[in-house]
Design a protein around this nucleic acid. Structure first.
Lengths: 119, 119
DNA sequence: CCATACCGTCAGTCTTGACTAACGGTTAGC
DNA sequence: GCTAACCGTTAGTCAAGACTGACGGTATGG
């Protein structure tokens, strides 16, 4: 309960190799072995990355015989996009208030104070 | 040159405490000392987090006397949003092709192959 | 049944990074 | 000039995680 979905997705995307994997999985459904060949790392590393991506909901798995096909899962990005939109909106709102001269700048004792020119 | 802007922003946001800091800086302009009090960590830790956020372009600094006021910078999220939109679009496009029965599933030898129903 | 192909998991190594404590630098007040 | 307040930087510690190698498990071919 201590880790939010946004946190899991963000940590998964923060790794460059996982983003490369996601790029490959964006257009095609690819088995693990093929990914390992493409990236010049061990299958084990790729498998661990895929586990992280699957736990984050960014990828789906489909077993066919002994091969596991992975595919990108766009819905996994919904939560992150929502988070970014909120932060974006909040920051823009604050910036707008600052421009209008009613910014929320706090003084040392915590009381409100008038904003000064950007200098 | 090996690190893209998307990578820097993503790594900066992947840390929970930095997201908390960003949340506080979204509405108000806050000095470092106040952030340290709010989070029950040393000023040094907060200062280092702010450095990462500033390098990522997610925060701006304004010096006033000995105090440094930090503020959220919404434009820093533009690149990340563009990246997410691209990945989102690519994945959705692939999913659409799969539904329409013309998915790009590769066989063992790399040749194209017809997609099978979703399990 | 035996060999092979494909994959996930575990143990162990090594790098990255979050944190504290101590230090130095700058500004305001007396 | 001296002191105090505020902050960035550094060295050092410790935990998280990316990676390799070895192992075991399952499905296909002979």
């Amino acid at each position: 309960m201590g880790v939010s979905q946004t946190d899991v997705v963000l940590r998964a995307l923060a790794e460059p190799r996982r983003r490369e994997i996601l790029t490959l999985l964006a257009h095609d459904e690819v088995p693990v072995g093929r990914l390992a060949e493409a990236f010049d790392v061990s299958r084990s590393a790729v498998s661990q990355h895929l586990r992280v991506l699957e736990d984050a909901g960014l990828v789906t798995r489909r077993a066919e015989g002994t091969r596991n096909f992975y595919r990108s899962r766009p819905e996994g990005l919904i939560g992150l996009r929502a988070y970014l939109d909120e932060t974006w909106a909040a920051s823009l709102d604050a910036a707008r208030r600052i421009v209008e001269g009613e910014a929320g700048v706090l003084d040392a004792d915590g009381t409100e104070r008038d904003s000064r020119a950007t200098a």
